[in-house]
């Protein structure tokens, strides 16, 4: 009984941690520009695919990972520079549509470069699963959780302790005021895209040994990440993490205890419920209208 519960919990937390990382990427960009970046899933895909293909070319694993993360970061900057920045006066909705276009574009390129097959990435450490009270834990899950935790802590420190982090926060709170005190908001925006690309690619890399990776893996994982961000409340870092874990655990529990047929239905009705009673999500900021 306990082992069963633990098994579902492990499954849920692992996948939930991935959702959380993707949701954090959404949050970062949303905070700095109020844009929901639907190309977030593609960063995830770039991370995984670039690592796999470079490793296949004989590049050592660690180097391949670093290069893949850098590639994703460059892509994030390019996305902001060439797609978002030229349309700076446009509505948020227009910008969101631009990100959708960008994601289709990136996916198309990836399909041409890497083909349509699924690829495997070896586990970072041992292939042997770990047994805890009768439940089995993939060693890679520990990596996902560990890397996720480190990234969350790093982000918190970045936003509270560094000047650049504070500049991003300032821009998110009031763009005009930030500009007046000398913050280069375009620069901040670029930084936000780069950071969220880095986050996405790291998530894509640590989770690839579990899920496999292919040119279109970003669609569904990106969507789930967005859902997690919405549950937690768009714009809230804590919300993204809680939303991601919650979504993962609810999915796994309903697959295990109710029926795998209803897994997605349960997850999505949860979103409906949360948004119904708390329209701004679990941790969403309260908006106070000034009169």
């Amino acid at each position: 009984m306990l082992s069963e519960f633990l098994q579902y919990l492990f499954t849920g937390i692992t996948i939930g941690a991935t959702y959380a990382l993707i949701a954090l990427g959404f949050t970062l960009i949303y905070n700095s520009s109020h844009v929901i970046n639907f190309a977030q899933g593609e960063f995830l895909m770039i991370g995984g695919m670039a690592t796999v293909s470079m490793a296949a070319m004989g590049v050592p694993m660690v180097l391949a990972i670093v290069l893949a993360i850098i590639l994703a970061g460059v892509l994030g900057i390019a996305l902001q520079r060439f797609a978002i920045a030229p349309a700076k006066q446009a509505d948020v909705v227009t910008l969101i549509i631009i990100t959708i276009g960008a994601s289709i574009f990136i996916r198309g390129i990836a399909q041409l470069v890497w083909g349509k097959e699924y690829h495997v990435m070896p586990n970072f450490s041992t292939n042997e699963p770990i047994e805890v009270f009768g439940a089995v834990l993939n060693s890679q899950s520990l990596w996902v959780l560990g890397v996720g935790a480190v990234l969350v802590v790093a982000l918190v420190l970045f936003f509270t302790k560094t000047l650049i982090g504070k500049a991003i926060l300032a821009t998110s709170m009031n763009k005009e005021a930030a500009r007046l005190v000398g913050i280069r908001t375009q620069m901040v925006l670029m930084l936000a895209f780069m950071l969220s690309a880095l986050l996405g690619s790291v998530a894509g890399i640590v989770v690839a040994p579990i899920t496999f990776t292919s040119y279109d893996i970003g669609i569904i994982l990106g969507l789930k990440g967005f859902v997690a961000a919405a549950i937690g409340g768009l714009g809230s870092g804590v919300g993204a993490v809680v939303g991601g874990l919650l979504l993962g655990i609810v999915e796994a529990m309903s697959a295990g205890y109710i029926s795998s047929d209803y897994k997605d239905a349960v997850a999505f009705s949860m979103i409906l419920l949360v948004l119904f009673f708390m329209p701004r999500g679990l941790f969403g900021a309260k908006i106070v209208e000034r009169v």
Binding site: E4, Q7, Y8, F10, T11, T14, I15, V136, V207, I210, T211, L221, A252, M253, A255, G256, S260
Partner: peptide
Amino acid sequence: TDMTAQLTN
């Protein structure tokens, strides 16, 4: 991306 729950069942 993970079928552990179903297999545990």
